[in-house]
Design a protein around this nucleic acid. Structure first.
Length: 296
DNA sequence: GGTAGACCTGGACGC
DNA sequence: GCGTCCAGGTCTACC
């Protein structure tokens, strides 16, 4: 077992990042409640399949500890991956400045919140987002498990990698639908996998900060099955925080939090976030909605 | 530009 | 047991 240490940003809370949204429940992520450790099975570019885990040192969380059963030569790549998946290199000071004037956001600033757990590849985040659309969260988990079990690469001890585009592209949409129970998402999933595997599409390029958010959104919306909600969700995972993911959960949360549960149009719900540009999504994710509902 | 209806799936619900 | 509804939307046709 090899390990490396990663210095934490100021006011960093590992658990807050891991549980920033539901991704931790989707394989190949796994959370150990006893040791508070986040683990993943990962396929490296050279084909090796390794397991790695990340945990925070006890409070104050000044360092993360990365461990892997891969060779010592895998550590630089895995460190780079952890920095991306935990958004360790992002600067949230402007967001915290905005939080200071908003009672429902003061807790977020005090805890150093803003980081959202993401996948190593845009491909994985897009697939998981596609699986979260027009279904229940339980079925999203099942679809991800089924796809990973069907064509992820096995680790020697336990678990599988998230499938590569090539592995998914090798299967017919009918099989994806029948075995993974992904329903009508099989077509868009298969097409996405084939476009990536055959080099017609490059989703990793969307991580380029030189691209405008409008350009990234436009490329995401060009994907089959990715509409306004799904594109906003992926934009958030790419560190672009001004496109609100308007779905049924958003409507319920904001109506109950800011409009006393009344009937309000999407236009009005979104307009309520205008003053929080360009961090509207972070405000939605980290706002103290329970406090708002309680009248605070 | 807005709106209705179809779309996989499976759990919840009413009967 | 069975039918219906709908969930962390998207797409198309139609007006």
């Amino acid at each position: 077992m090899h390990h490396a240490e990663i210095p934490c940003p100021a006011a960093f809370h590992f658990r807050d990042v891991v549980f920033s949204h539901g991704w931790v429940q989707l394989p190949p992520h796994a959370w150990d409640v006893d040791t508070e450790t986040l683990a993943r099975i990962e396929r490296l570019p050279d084909g090796r399949v390794v397991r790695y885990s990340v945990r925070a040192e006890a409070t104050p969380q000044r360092r993360l500890v990365l461990e892997t059963d891969g060779g010592a030569d895998t550590l630089p790549l895995l460190l780079q991956q952890v920095r991306w998946t935990l958004a360790l290199d992002e600067d949230f000071r402007e967001f915290y400045a905005l939080c200071a004037a908003e009672p429902g956001l003061r807790g977020a600033a005090e805890r150093g919140q803003g980081r959202i757990l993401r996948s190593p590849t845009v491909w994985e985040d897009v697939v998981k987002t596609l699986f979260s659309v027009n279904t229940t969260w339980g079925q999203t988990i099942a679809m991800t498990r089924n796809l990973t079990a069907l064509c992820g690469e096995p680790h020697s001890e336990a678990g599988r990698t998230f499938p590569t585009p090539a592995a998914v592209a090798a299967l017919e949409p009918e099989e994806l639908q029948r075995v993974c129970r992904v329903g009508y998402r099989a077509g868009p999933l298969s097409r996405l996998a084939r476009d990536l595997a055959e080099g017609r599409l490059d989703l990793e390029a969307l991580k380029d900060p030189a691209l405008t958010t409008e350009e990234v959104e436009s490329r995401l919306r060009a994907l089959q099955g990715i509409g306004p909600y799904a594109a906003a969700n992926v934009l958030m995972l790419l560190g672009r925080y001004d496109h609100l993911p308007v779905d049924s959960w958003f409507r319920k949360t904001v109506r109950e939090g800011w409009f006393e549960g009344g009937a309000v149009s999407d236009r009005e719900l979104v307009a309520a976030f205008d003053r929080f540009r360009p961090y509207r999504t972070l405000v939605y994710v980290f706002y103290d909605w329970a406090g708002a509902r309680a009248g605070g």
